[in-house]
Simulated scan of single mutants.
Amino acid sequence: MLFALGGEPGSRLAAELAVPISGDTILRRVKAVPAEHETSYRFVGIDDFALRKGHTYGTILVDLQRGRGIDLFDGRDGAPVAAWLKTHPGIEVITRDLWAAYANACTVGAPQATQVADRFHLVGNIRELVERLFEQHGSALDTALESPPTADAESRLETASTPVISSEQVPTTPPSVTTAGNPNTLPELATVAPPVRSHGQQRRQDRFDDVRRLRREGQSIRQIARALRISSKTVLRYARSTQCPDWNLGAPRATRLDRF
């Protein structure tokens, strides 16, 4: 544990363990330990890490069989990874993320190895697809999740929907007189129900309203994009539109889930 922490951190831990030792002594002991002979690797993991997100990255190689790091490289262009893999022909399986540079490096450096996407990115991709699917069929899910009415509720609903006509409400119009000939009788207008919005459409409408409101308050396109965490192109398109675009208010489109 002291060797893993290094100089001053190891010295502080040693003091807590009642074994006072200086950081320089720990470093000397670490350098005096003979280096382990490099063993063969069968299962290797490759991933990147950020020293400064969006600017400076590095690459780490991990021995998945022993659960320990193998090497670190600057950048994530894949060239050092390909060179390292060529010197270790015994690798059988490589787990990596979906970065194209790593895929090319594994193909060039270890063509005999099987490339496997790591679990983190697989779970993330599944989550995104399921979330997108739920947004597309949000209204159908709401209908399916509604609790069915009970027998008492159905009977009350039928009673309320049946009109009760008293003797005072019976019309006194002679049978020979029809409403068609009465000029004072207006035809009953059919009401059209507004289209039902899905979760995705409602969220898009709310975002559209927020963009228009912030734009009226004088904020710039870049400020709105940062505040709402959307692209500047989307903010510009919403700002120029009079209504929320990309709506599908017509009949629902056929999908592969309809038969289920």
Rank of each mutant, 00 (worst) to 15 (best):
A180D: 14
T59N: 01
A140C: 04
R42Y: 04
S167D: 06
S155A: 15
F3E: 01
P195H: 08
D71K: 04
N125W: 03
V177P: 03
G200D: 09
T172Y: 01
R203H: 06
D152R: 15
A18K: 12
G23T: 05
T39K: 10
T234E: 12
E38A: 09
L98K: 13
W247N: 14
F260P: 02
A82V: 00
Q65F: 02
G23P: 03
V93M: 07
T25G: 00
V170F: 01
W84E: 00
T143H: 07
P111Q: 02
P171D: 10
K86A: 01
L2K: 01
V81D: 00
D74H: 05
R76T: 05
L189E: 14
L257I: 09
N248V: 09
A32E: 12
A82S: 11
E135L: 13
F208G: 09
E8L: 08
V196H: 10
T242H: 14
I224T: 12
I94S: 02
R66S: 10
H37G: 13
E36C: 02
P195N: 07
A193I: 09
L257D: 06
L98W: 10
R215G: 07
R203P: 00
P194N: 13
L186P: 10
R226S: 14
I165Y: 12
R119T: 08
V62C: 14
Y238W: 02
A140D: 11
I91L: 00
D209V: 05
E146Q: 15
L51S: 15
L157A: 15
L2Y: 03
T179G: 15
E154L: 10
F49V: 11
R240G: 09
T255S: 14
R42T: 12
E92M: 02
L129R: 15
W99F: 10
R256Y: 07
A103S: 12
E38V: 07
N248W: 06
T162S: 11
R212S: 07
P80D: 00
G90V: 00
R68T: 06
G90A: 03
D77S: 05
E168Q: 06
V30P: 01
E188M: 10
R197H: 14
A227W: 01
A79F: 00
S147C: 02
F120I: 05
I221C: 14
E135S: 12
R66K: 12
T242A: 07
V33E: 08
L61D: 00
E217S: 11
I165Q: 08
V44W: 00
A32G: 06
R226W: 03
